[in-house]
Computed example of a mutant assay.
Amino acid sequence: MAENLKVLAALEDSDELLLWSRCKEEKGNFPGIEVEKLTNEQCRSFFRFDKDDIEILRRALRIPEKVVCSNRTTARGIDGLCVVLRRLAYPSRLEDLEYIFGRSKTELSLIINEVLDYIHDNHCHLLSDFNMSWLSPIVLRTFCRCGFRSL
């Protein structure tokens, strides 16, 4: 497992085919990524978020500790969010994600849909109207100053 994670972290996005072919040979022996054991650099590479920011994002989106799908497939909330982040960060097929997350295509599909549905159902109102007070020019300038000190 540790060796596979080191190989995965060292690869560029275009080199993931090499890892997938290696993992296919070891199918069943690859238990999947444990987010807690990843380095900050690995999290940035896999999910485009820092390690600590993934948990902050999970709490901000109010994704529950345990995600339960329609067929009773379960996943930890952090794992479900990571599957979604990976799916959105890099174009990959569910078959490719099997070897990263140690779950079947069916489970991954259910988890991705459950998490995305949860986010949509609980936060779509934020995108229904762009005339929100928190999108005023003054507030947006404040956001810019906080995020970009050079402005």
Rank of each mutant, 00 (worst) to 15 (best):
N40E: 11
D121H: 05
Y118R: 12
V83I: 14
V68D: 12
S92Q: 13
K51C: 04
E55D: 12
I119C: 07
V68Y: 04
R59Q: 06
I78T: 05
R93W: 00
E36V: 12
I111V: 10
H120Y: 06
S92L: 05
I56S: 04
L110Q: 15
E41Y: 00
I63K: 06
L94V: 11
F101S: 01
T73P: 09
K105C: 13
C82E: 11
G102C: 14
L88P: 10
R76C: 09
A60Q: 09
R86C: 14
D121C: 01
R72F: 01
E36T: 13
I112C: 03
R72E: 15
P91A: 13
D50V: 06
V67M: 11
D96I: 03
C69W: 08
L94E: 06
S104R: 02
T39L: 03
L61T: 08
V35E: 07
F47N: 02
V35I: 14
F46K: 10
Y118H: 13
S104W: 08
P91K: 15
R59Y: 08
S92G: 06
R48E: 14
R103P: 10
Q42M: 04
R87A: 12
Y118S: 00
F49K: 05
R59W: 02
E36W: 02
L110E: 15
A75M: 00
R87F: 15
